[in-house]
Simulated scan of single mutants.
Amino acid sequence: MRLLCSNILPLRMEESQKAFIEYFNEVASNSDCLEIAVGYVSKAALKELGKVVEENRISKVCLNIGMYYLEGMPEGTYHAAISLNEAWKKSDVDGEVRIVKAFKYHGKLYTFYKKGKPIAGIVGSHNLGGIKLEASNLRQYEVSAVTEIPEEIEEISSIIHKLKQPNCSANIQEVNVPIIREVNRALVDQEFVTKITSDEINAYQSKITDTSFEIPLKVPVNHEDPKMRGSNINVCYANGRKRAWWEVEMVVGKEIRDLPGYPEHQVPFMAVTDDGWKFQAWTCGQNNKNLYSKDDLKIMGRWIKGRLVATGLVEPVNQVEADTTFEGMITEEMLEKYGRKSITLTKTTLRTTTEDGTEVDVWMLSFLPRNADVEEVIL
């Protein structure tokens, strides 16, 4: 048995010791089968695991995650796990991501095989985040033990295999995992935007009226679809002047604009979102076709796209002109995974006063997933 330790001052590793991440990568490069059962994972670690499996041509892999079925899973981590599971299904890899559902499993077990023979086993305190160091775990000290004795590896493997049985776990896409909604940080500290509490959200929602409009998000079907590529919430990809990735143009159909009670042309109102943000918006443009955030077009984009970023479905693009493969483009496939393809604009009975003393109506904007499993808000 050897110890795999963190290398953090003042407890530096000794010359005879090896870091977990170093040993993991070393033994993975010599393996064709990898099985893991841990309590927690991270988005970055899931992506790193996918990279390790691909680069080392590992043909069989199983990741079993133990704590989220009863505790709830952060939505960004959930979507990253789903993506990894789907990627393995579509590739030549015999792999899957599973969720322990019978109880809270908090162990950390890893086994590595080559041509059917056990070559290494790890037991200890390292969750999957140990394979990808980031800000959240750089100062977290962990210790694990590694064995290369076949009998001990098989003993570890036996527990992992028991956890894979249907009475203990299931494939992540067959389980209704409670989702913990993550904060849309794209609006944090933005000018003209105010954060409100969950109690305030509930107070506004208690005053909604029957005047409500469901506004579809018009996007391409997928990244290969040329239609709608460069309009509406993907306007940053349009030809012409350069726009920031966060900038959007919400174009509302005539059949919605002509309904009774739709906001008047260029009459500002206070928009309160269902995830706790408040900013001014209005309708404008030719024939009143555009729904914009009033003070900065990027605010509406940071609200809509920021929700998708928080779920891990897309990453912000700093230089849109360099995104020739349209990785940052919002698609129908992406919205389906998110759980919503439209936003809802609903009038309340309330009015409020802006900083300049103007009295305006209050409307609710909704874009949270229509998913009953979303049960907690991190504010």
Rank of each mutant, 00 (worst) to 15 (best):
P74F: 02
Y78L: 09
E48D: 07
P74Y: 03
A44K: 11
N127M: 06
G124Y: 04
P74C: 09
E86P: 01
T77I: 14
I65A: 06
E96F: 08
V97I: 14
I131W: 03
E86S: 07
V52P: 01
R139H: 14
G50P: 01
G107Q: 09
A102L: 04
P118I: 05
G124Q: 05
E154S: 11
K90E: 13
K90V: 05
I99W: 01
K89I: 04
F112M: 10
A102V: 04
K51W: 09
V38Y: 00
I153H: 05
E151A: 10
E154K: 14
Y40H: 14
S136W: 11
E152Y: 08
L46W: 01
N127G: 14
K51H: 11
V123P: 00
V52E: 07
R57K: 14
L84S: 05
V41T: 12
N127P: 04
K51A: 12
L46N: 04
E134W: 08
A37S: 13
L46F: 06
K104T: 15
K104R: 15
E96K: 12
E134L: 06
E142S: 09
L133Q: 07
E154I: 13
E71G: 13
Y105C: 08
R98P: 07
V100R: 01
P150Q: 15
G121I: 02
Y68L: 02
E48L: 02
A145Q: 08
F112A: 08
V143W: 02
V93Y: 11
E148T: 14
K43M: 12
G130E: 02
G107W: 00
I99Q: 06
E71R: 15
M73T: 02
P150N: 13
V61L: 10
L63H: 04
Y69K: 10
E55N: 11
T111Y: 00
Y68I: 02
V143D: 00
A102T: 08
A87V: 06
Q140I: 15
G66N: 08
A120L: 09
Y110Q: 05
I119C: 08
I36H: 00
M73K: 06
T77A: 13
H126R: 00
E134C: 10
V143K: 04
S83T: 14
E154D: 14
S91Q: 09
Y113C: 05
E155M: 15
E54R: 12
T77E: 11
L84H: 03
A80H: 02
